[in-house]
Design a protein around this nucleic acid. Structure first.
Lengths: 268, 268
DNA sequence: CGTGAACTTGACAGAATTCAAAGTCTGTGG
DNA sequence: CCACAGACTTTGAATTCTGTCAAGTTCACG
């Protein structure tokens, strides 16, 4: 039992295609259909299996492709000032990897598979060409960029202002929500991250994570055995975690009707 | 003496236009010229003065426009779980405000002017229309999105893994670098943020900031009197701060020549 | 010149890390 | 199938860092 969404097929093999992909609605080609979708499919030249613990790309590697997670999970991590690795993101099926390299021309961190995974390789120059041809695709791309940005911002929010228990609660709820979006359970799932990964993501130490999980269990908030976790009291966990990230409206792209009202409240 | 880059004109009044704008190379229309630039200029319907401490938009406000900072500085802040405000970003001339709202359809936080400022209001629907017509503009937009994403990621990195002195050093160096990019000094500038803002940005308390500034001064790293700061020993400060964010290559968009090499290093 | 906000400094308490050790799981090879 | 080695996880002190509380000081503005 490895794959995280319990319902997921054990290995949607490297022969999948966008038109039939289970995760298309979450992914970049969500906005496409017909010929445009076929075009996109042929631009996605390669489906690349990445075994657990293998590195999809190194830190500092030149940016050539974006990757769409087809199956499995990834972490991206950067060398932290203090010597360790800071995990900056966790990617699930449908998520895009490599957006943080668009600006710099190289990947700021490395991406490592947390479980046996498959990615779709999107050569960026080819993708850009298609973005220029397909406004709907370009819009979708901006939306996914925006989701990623909002996610990082929210992450910076709680990394900066939340204490240890809030941070862990935030992570667990976020994982659960994302599993739920993918057809799994929001309250019972398998942790693909080790305690060390969780620590590196929350900005805490392994020991703190372990202690917190024990404390949460004592308080009846969750049940955890090895890497299988059940959130028994999501409501209380949410209360503990504080305000959630505001939900990205992934479906409705943009309603074109906005009066140019310019409220300017002075706060003096 | 308010404006941050000492060289800047005191008030590039609301009559400026993109073709003559001092910050165009840093801003969205950097890639445009001629008729396309004029088109963009006419889409930027309004230049809006925002007095110090006034709010450009509220938290949770529906997303209608992006804002380009023409003059002055802004902070964006969100309500933190613990009750206070967490400052999530500082925007300077040429920067875009509101990108974090593209995905959610509403602004996750509020934007407040740190000094008397002027913004260019970009109605997002009109901008999207133009992005569809002008691939160069769209590419530039993605680049700025990417810079913002990389910035947040780097921020999350040090918020998660750095101790208090590193965090403050990181902020001061980042501010200096951005002033330098705008024609000011990287080592001597005016802090438009209050100690409270600095604390809310670094995830520390006002008292810690104050103590750290004093300690840095004792160590000969900097000189600070009120809000005027001079970084005396940038090298040592950099060493203290740890690895900097990798520099976004803002000028060269993308070299179109990338072999599809797929290295797959196992880290077992 | 006075008032209030912003900033600085000190003493103390609490939170989280560090150091240290024991316990548990996983996968390998017999 | 079982035993073993190494990695991962848990738990327990002691230490360090940062926040909290409580002054006092300086600065900006009327």
């Amino acid at each position: 039992m490895h794959a995280s969404p319990p319902v997921a097929p054990p290995r949607p093999s490297a022969t999948a295609t966008c038109p039939t992909c289970r995760w298309r609605a979450l992914c970049l080609p969500a906005a496409l259909a017909g010929a445009a979708l076929d075009d996109f499919e042929s631009a996605v030249a390669v489906r690349l299996p990445v075994p657990r613990h293998a590195r999809l790309h190194a830190a500092g590697a030149p940016f050539g492709h974006l990757y769409a997670v087809l199956c499995g999970e990834f972490k991206t991590q950067c060398a932290a000032p203090a010597g360790g690795m800071q995990v900056t993101a966790v990617a699930m099926p449908g998520d895009l990897l490599g957006l943080d390299a668009v600006a710099g021309g190289r990947h700021p961190g490395e991406a490592v598979a947390l479980s046996d995974s498959v990615v779709c390789v999107l050569p960026y120059p080819a993708l850009e060409a298609q973005l220029a041809r397909e406004p709907a695709l370009a819009q979708r791309f901006r939306l996914m960029f925006g989701v990623e940005l909002a996610r990082r911002q929210h992450q910076a929010l709680w990394l900066g202002s939340a204490r240890a228990p809030q941070r862990l609660a935030q992570l667990l709820l976020d994982l659960g929500q994302r599993y739920a979006e993918r057809g799994g359970s929001a309250t019972a799932f398998h942790l693909s991250m080790s305690r060390e990964d969780i620590a590196a993501f929350t900005g805490l130490t392994v020991e703190s994570i372990s202690r917190l999980l024990s404390a949460f269990r004592r308080d009846g908030l969750l049940n955890v055995s090895n890497r299988d976790i059940v959130l028994c009291d999501p409501a209380r966990l949410r209360a503990l975690a504080g305000p959630p990230a505001l939900q990205p409206a992934l479906q409705p792209p943009f309603p074109l009707a906005l009066p140019l009202a310019l409220p300017l409240a002075a706060t003096a």
